[in-house]
Amino acid sequence: MSVPLVELDNLTVRFHGERTVHAVNGVSFTLKAGETLGILGESGSGKSVTLKTLLRLLPENRTEIGGGVRVDGADILKLEGRALADHRGGTASMIFQDPMLALDPVYTIGEQIAEAVIRHEGVSSAEGMARALDMLTRVRIPSPERRLKAYPHEMSGGMRQRAMIALALACRPKLLLADEPTTALDATVQIQILLLLRDLQREFGMGMIFVTHDIGVAVEVSDRVAVMYAGEIVETGSVRDLIRDPRHPYTKGLLAANLHGAVKGARLHAIPGAPPALAEAPKACSFAPRCPVKVSGCDINRPPSVALGEARQVRCVLAAPAPGA
């Protein structure tokens, strides 16, 4: 098998400031070229931090990153200066939740896309503009010639999201990082953007990592899903396995809380309590204080990551096959 597009090996991220936050605590996964991994988790689970590490977007002076991060063969944590700038937007590119913050308000959409193409590919500004037009057409913005000259504030929310996708994909990145790009959109627009991303990903053959808190969204776009809790991946598997047969108690709780097919009048199986504050690195299972099926060892030792078949891992002592079985 060839080298994976993305290889995270025991990634840890700590933020130092007024207080230390252990945001990511030993995350490992690989992503093949052309594959889509959905990262599912609640706020504070470390999903966005993991994603930003892949572009080195975290503030350098108060972030401590450990472990290994490789994208397309390059060691991301060692990149400096021009090489890092080449990586951002060239090899890997990112789309965000709020396009109004991601786009520059004083340049037209066309200028912004052309600038990225000129910087990364060294083409003329006419060629850059031609690429911008091509990209706006590909993301199916109506009357793209006119939109090329539009400023971000002149477009609707869904249109801006399309423009941001056009910008991110203008230099044909091998990896697209999507950080909740549809969360702020209405449902009818969200599904349009999800279908667009699915099509473009297939067309360009990119790898994609899609961070979301919405299980339905993860199901629509992902091949595999990783569920994060308190800075760790608690369960990973194909989207089919994970939805039909969740093994980690947190995944089970999350699926029940989605209310899909919940019986009216019946009580919801809510997970009690709240996620931990992550002031220190986890020594035991982070989910143990909220877990309905906790056993005696859960507060003492970190559970092992149990492999269940190919590409299926669960970080729970109960997932291990019974000894002697």
Binding site: T188, I191, Q192, G216, V219, E220, R240
Partner: peptide, 17 residues
């Protein structure tokens, strides 16, 4: 969004904003 990986949404029910 569909909750069934085998029956994903294939077409957006509405176009535009």
């Amino acid at each position: 969004p569909s909750m069934d990986p085998d029956r994903r949404t294939m077409e957006a029910p509405l176009a535009g904003d």
